[in-house]
């Protein structure tokens, strides 16, 4: 495993986390903020699944299950949020 890549991802994940927190702190709400937050979560989760968990080199079925979990979970959250807007 490329340790350099791991380090880069680590920094990226830290930055993304602070970004999410800032969105909350600055009081941004609404569809745009929530979409941004969920997209950030998706990217973070994807990085963890692909390279920390190491599923990048595993056949599609297993990767699909875990990435699928992430996307479906976030999609359900988004749908519930969207329904709440009406």
């Amino acid at each position: 495993m490329n340790t350099h890549l791991l380090n880069m991802l680590w920094v990226a994940l830290l930055v993304a986390t602070v970004l999410t927190w800032l969105i909350g702190k600055t009081g941004y709400t609404g569809p745009l903020a929530v979409s941004a937050i969920l997209v950030i979560a998706a990217i973070k989760g994807w990085m963890i699944i692909q390279d920390f968990m190491g599923l990048r080199r595993v056949r599609l079925l297993w990767r699909g299950i875990v990435v699928g979990w992430l996307l479906v979970t976030l999609a359900v959250i988004l749908i519930a949020y969207w329904l709440g807007l009406k």
Partner: peptide, 15 residues
Amino acid sequence: DLVWIVLFPLVYVMR
């Protein structure tokens, strides 16, 4: 870790 990545924005941040 992965679970927390979803939990944190859901419970603490988004509204």
